[in-house]
């Protein structure tokens, strides 16, 4: 596979409930080895879209698309077994809250090594080395000791670094990060995003970063896609965000409070107006 080929190519993606309620209403997008942010409010369908790229949607939802390729695999027709060869190997995901995503009964080393056990054959010594190398790469101190620790002994920021180590240990081509910082303290958020940014950059991977905080992710991505009520309503380069023309994107960009906005109301969405645009 060459560097130029696209990692994700989706056209007319629809996700909905069995009773016919559409949650994602036919979106088109493609991405290569670049950093893309998918931004929207909760309920906009951004997480569902991301999960469909991992084959992780619950059975109660249906997925339809005119075209759906992930790393040149026609994954829409894939069963669990075929997905398992892709997931955690060539595509991996970091979830919102490390507290729930890590297994409390297994030590860190074992959990980080698990993708290696599943997708590569190597000696256990080599595996330990790789695990320690990865833990070091995500900026965790003293990997040899950390390997033997359990999730409850880590802070949220450390837990999310462990999740990253686990996601990247097989050198995937695409990383999907679903609100990777929203369970973390404010001070740690930028650190984790910067770490994701540098790791993705180093490995020349694709990154799909999902968030509801447009300002925060803008610094770490090249392109931004904005979702609202199941549709992709805006699509622009990160540098163009201050001059966004779509009212929804404008509001998401400017609604973050800061000291300069004291005393004046924050911009909010005019939802009725957005309905008419839809």
């Amino acid at each position: 596979m060459t560097n130029k080929s696209s990692l994700v190519d989706v056209r007319g993606l629809q996700i909905g409930l069995a009773d016919g309620t559409e949650l994602v209403k036919g979106i088109d997008f493609s991405m290569g080895r670049e950093r893309v942010a998918l931004v929207g409010e909760s309920g906009s369908g951004k997480s569902l879209t991301a999960r469909s790229l991992m084959g992780l949607l619950p059975d109660s939802l249906y997925v339809e698309a005119d075209h759906f390729q992930l790393l040149d695999h026609p994954v829409l027709t894939y069963g669990q077994r075929q997905w398992n060869t892709l997931r955690g190997h060539q595509v991996s995901m970091v979830l919102q809250d490390p507290k729930y995503a890590l297994n409390p009964t297994q030590n860190i080393g074992r959990q980080v090594a698990e993708p290696l056990v599943l997708h590569q054959s190597m000696s256990s010594k080599a595996r330990v080395e790789k695990v320690e190398y990865m833990l070091d790469a995500v900026g965790l101190p003293n990997p040899a000791k950390l390997r033997k620790m359990y999730p409850h002994q880590l802070s949220g920021g450390m837990g999310q670094r462990v999740m990253l180590a686990m996601a990247l240990i097989n050198d995937p081509q695409l990383l999907i990060a679903d609100e990777p910082t929203s369970a973390l303290d404010h001070a740690v958020r930028d650190q984790v995003l910067a770490l994701i940014h540098s790791l993705v950059e180093e490995r020349n991977m694709g990154l799909l970063l999902i968030s509801h905080d447009l300002q925060q992710v803008a610094d770490y991505c090249e392109r931004v896609m904005v979702m609202y009520q199941g549709k992709l309503i805006d699509h622009l380069a990160a540098e163009a965000l201050p001059n966004a023309t779509h009212p929804y994107t404008q509001t998401l960009w400017s609604c973050r409070p800061n000291i300069a906005k004291r005393g004046q109301p924050l911009p909010t969405l005019d939802r009725e107006h957005l309905e008419t645009l839809n």
Binding site: G12, S60, Y62, V63, E64, D66, H67, F68, T77
Partner: peptide, 8 residues
């Protein structure tokens, strides 16, 4: 062409 994945 619509490809789709629905549970049996």
């Amino acid at each position: 062409m619509i490809i789709s994945k629905k549970g049996v």
